[in-house]
């Protein structure tokens, strides 16, 4: 038996270790970003935000993210429903295929897209080029790479929730006269919302921050095809550390906004459903 005192000191020791670890890997690096961004004062930070290359990079990142989230949410929901509600040959294979982006290095994923859509060398590239569509070293390639690396998130989060829910509430809704859309909107969606929100958050975070795959397909042309994470790296390589850390701070800001959005949603639902 441990004495109450030694139990107490053990407790404090554990808390101290956790806090130290957190400070080392999370708090201090985040602080560095803020400090470095404001090294030349507010003026330096604002000047960095007004650079054309920074604004172009932000625009590209936001566009790629805005296209990726709805597409992967839709795909993720469909895939999750098909997998959770049906037993068919090849089901296990489908689950593994959805996970492929997790197991392939993003750089390899980017290279794959170049080999497929490259203007001269790619399998499909010449076809698109003949239609006047430039995929690689352009926005379509960036979007494709972002979609690829974030594909599994929504499906992965929603499948277990749907399986846990079971088919009966859906069947009950249909016996009560609900059509497919009403069943989805009134019964499935409210029950899977946490998994779905979490999947979308992860998709968003990864889409904003993706470096490797996008760097390969975009060609990283400053001011034209560089996205925010690439801009950060390029600025730093060019000894423009204020610009690099200012962009990093903006990137982190988007992430924080998303978390605030999630908290607001949570609060809204908690008020609506006091018992949950």
């Amino acid at each position: 038996m441990l004495s109450v005192n030694s139990q107490k000191s053990q407790k404090w020791a554990l808390i101290a270790i956790a806090l130290f670890y957190l400070a080392l890997v999370l708090v201090i690096p985040a602080l560095v970003v803020v400090v470095e961004a404001f090294r030349d004062g507010i003026g330096g930070f604002l000047a960095a935000l007004q650079s054309r290359n920074f604004q172009k990079a932000t625009e590209l990142t936001l566009i790629a993210t805005a296209i990726t989230i709805p597409l992967n949410t839709l795909f993720g929901l469909c895939a999750a429903w098909v997998i959770a509600r049906n037993r068919f040959p090849g089901r296990a294979l489908l689950i593994s295929i959805i996970d492929v982006p997790f197991s392939i290095s993003p750089v390899v994923a980017g290279l794959m897209l170049v080999l497929l859509y490259g203007e001269r060398i790619g399998w499909l590239g010449p076809l698109f080029a003949s239609m006047g569509i430039k995929v690689i070293f352009a926005l379509p390639g960036i979007v494709l790479a972002t979609i690829f690396v974030t594909l599994p998130f929504v499906a992965r989060e929603v499948i277990p929730v749907l399986e846990d829910l079971g088919p009966e509430p859906e069947e009950a809704a249909r016996t009560l006269g609900a059509n497919d859309w009403q069943t989805f909107y009134r019964v499935i969606l409210p029950n899977i919302r946490w998994g779905l929100i979490y999947g979308v958050l992860l998709t968003n975070a990864r889409a904003l921050g993706e470096f490797g795959a996008v760097a390969v397909v975009s060609g990283s042309i400053l001011g034209r095809t560089s996205t925010l994470p690439i801009f950060v790296e390029q600025s730093y390589q060019n000894y423009q550390s204020v610009a690099a850390f200012s962009a990093a701070l903006v990137l982190a800001g988007f992430g924080v906004l998303m978390l605030i959005g999630k908290a607001i949603l949570e609060n809204y639902y908690l008020k609506k459903l006091p018992s949950h």
């Binding site: 009966e168 009950a172 249909r174 016996t175 009560l176 609900a178 009134r186 019964v187 409210p190």
Partner: peptide
């Protein structure tokens, strides 16, 4: 199913757990 005008009761109730008793009854 939705066109047959049947009432169906499931073994494990299959109530909509995000809705109150009133909302459950009012669903159809």
């Amino acid at each position: 199913v939705q066109e047959r005008q049947i009432g169906f009761v499931f073994q494990h109730y299959a109530l909509f757990k995000h809705l109150t008793v009133r909302q459950n009854i009012a669903f159809g």
